[in-house]
Design a protein around this nucleic acid. Sequence first.
DNA 1: CTACACCCTGTACCATTGTACGGTGTCAAG
DNA 2: CTTGACACCGTACAATGGTACAGGGTGTAG
Lengths: 149, 149
Amino acid sequence: MTTMTIGKAARLSGVGVETVRFYERRGLIDQPPRPANGGFRVYPEPTVERIRFIRQAQELGFSLAEIAGLLALRADPSADCAEVRDHAEAKLDEVERKIAGLEHLRQALAQIIAACPGQGALGACTIMDALAGAGPSTAVGKQRNERRP
Amino acid sequence: MTTMTIGKAARLSGVGVETVRFYERRGLIDQPPRPANGGFRVYPEPTVERIRFIRQAQELGFSLAEIAGLLALRADPSADCAEVRDHAEAKLDEVERKIAGLEHLRQALAQIIAACPGQGALGACTIMDALAGAGPSTAVGKQRNERRP
DNA sequence: CTACACCCTGTACCATTGTACGGTGTCAAG
DNA sequence: CTTGACACCGTACAATGGTACAGGGTGTAG
């Protein structure tokens, strides 16, 4: 098993040592015990994965409290299955709503990019226009982006 | 044109009046002028759309500074097209990365939900397991050491 | 014309999510 | 056995994104 000090765990997961300790205090990751015979705390490799997950989930718009909920989901027999499943299903809905919102935004950005180099009349000039129009009716070369999901 | 007071604009966009003012201070939305003859500021309907966009973008993991950047994107001839397009393309990349991350998370959640009611052997009990394994029945040959301590 | 809800401005306060710092302990290379 | 890098712990400070008054103005229903 790969183990390391907190400094290496922090470097590998792309955060500062203080951030690791902060996540420990918030209960997002376990703080390894200090060895009985003295010395430094020893961090296992999965902690690095966990921190990376936390950072990624944050970029996807989840708060640390929500991320704690995700990390606490356990599909094992000792937990109340129905409760876990309800929670997981609620999160799944949320994830799917986010995906839908991002797809919408993606299309709007694609429309702006497509409209940009054209020197003619511009129908969807801003994000708000692109989102409102949702596409083609304006005379900018009909960016009907029918991309497959 | 539909117009309204700040209170109604706030209610329609699902935020508090103070939040609307906060966004004004941050330059995310325009503050309408006070009527010369006195009285209340008059908000147009597009401001409501704009606030809703801000809130949605926040839930998708964008900071207010980033959202300001999105709202400032203008594909019109007065702006430097190349610059606008670069910015829009960078944002598009980011959006697509977020979508990919969310799809990944979606699959992990689906896996937990699927594993939950079954009483048999559970392979992917937590989010971290589900993400590491990357696949239940669809045997995706991801060469990942799945070690159980 | 009075009550009452709502607006305006300014300032203060708050939660979340870190980041920095100071003082001390540990360890390993030279 | 000294020295430098890093760990540990506690506390303080900071950026972001609001939220809450206080003290006044405005507009309309009754």
